[in-house]
């Protein structure tokens, strides 16, 4: 504790200045590099776009996560536009200065990859889980093949494929953005895990529920959406959030293909001669960031489980 706060130096221009002031932690490195940790190499003049995206994110997430938000119904409709608006804000074009995605970095990069992965892996995972149980052989074989292949390969391998090998498979001259490729790979990877988690939930639904839905004349999709999936998803919440958290932390792996997430920024900072040897401070800071995000997700999943509990409320 003393080291963390009482004896720590919070300002200073280098490690030497820190140790001259106090014997504890040198948090000045974080202060000095906070912008780098947050925005990566995003051009300073355009950082308002990242900030605005964050504000939009908060305004989109609240109505989705909590029921008691005013005008929730409208907010949910507007939420559909969020990915497009944010992508436009961050990448630019159409009136905004374009920013290359290799300038993305830091927490912003973590959030971009994490939220894209989380947002898209859930619906894709649901479709794969349903596909795996489908009576149509083509859909079933595709789903099983996809899930087993993606699950059988480490994420790092997929990221390498995304960063290097994909170019060999594409026609010459066709390239697409590295970040986009990473996003796709991370999403697919998480989808395969998500599918299996949701399949577990689907299998826990008693046969009678399907029969009751069928006997009413509900279509397959209505029965799934109204009866089976709400129950299956509820059962799967712990597994789904587990996958989310895993995915979120796996975003740090992008460091190996040259994208600078907070961990990458941290390592770069430590390479700076002014700040060498401060690894404890830097990694602790990054760890705290991840812990706050992940713990938040875990708490929310608890809240959701309690809210959806309808079995024994006598």
């Amino acid at each position: 504790m003393d080291w963390l706060f009482l004896d720590a130096a919070f300002t200073g221009g280098s490690r030497d200045e820190c140790s001259a002031k106090a014997g504890g932690a040198c948090w000045a490195v974080i202060g000095e590099r906070l912008n780098l940790f947050t925005y990566g190499f995003y051009p300073a003049a355009e950082r308002w776009r990242v900030n605005l995206s964050l504000v939009l994110l908060i305004f989109t997430l609240f109505p989705i996560l909590f029921e008691k938000v005013p005008y929730r119904k409208y907010a949910l409709h507007i939420a559909v536009a969020f990915p497009f608006v944010t992508a436009w804000l961050l990448v630019g074009g159409l009136g905004l200065t374009p920013v290359e995605t290799d300038q993305f970095g830091g927490f912003m990069l973590t959030l971009v990859i994490g939220i894209t992965g989380i947002g898209f892996s859930l619906p894709i995972g649901i479709l794969l889980a349903l596909g795996r149980q489908s009576k149509l052989p083509a859909i079933q074989i595709f789903s099983i093949g996809f899930i087993e292949f993606i699950r059988g390969v480490p994420l790092i391998t997929l990221l390498f494929v995304a960063s290097t090998m994909l170019n060999y498979f594409l026609p010459p001259g066709v390239t697409f953005d590295l970040l986009l490729r990473v996003l796709i790979m991370v999403t697919l990877f998480a989808s395969a895990y998500m599918a299996e988690v949701i399949r577990g939930g689907l299998q826990a639904i008693p046969k009678g529920q399907f029969e009751a839905a069928d006997s009413m004349g509900l279509h397959y999709w209505s029965a799934m959406r109204l009866i089976v999936l709400p129950q299956a998803m509820k059962i799967s919440i712990p597994g789904i959030v587990n996958t989310f958290i895993g995915l979120y932390k796996d975003t740090t792996l992008v460091i190996i293909i040259g994208l600078l997430d907070p961990l990458g920024i941290g390592r770069a900072s430590l390479a700076d001669t002014k700040w060498t040897g401060l690894s404890t401070e830097v990694y602790l800071f990054v760890a705290i960031f991840f812990f706050i995000s992940c713990f938040g997700m875990a708490r929310y999943s608890q809240h959701l489980e309690n809210k959806l509990e309808t079995d024994h409320k006598r």
Binding site: P206, T310, D311
Partner: peptide
């Protein structure tokens, strides 16, 4: 049905 099969949610 014998086991009612009401939708619990």
């Amino acid at each position: 049905f014998q086991h009612f099969n009401l939708f619990p949610h």
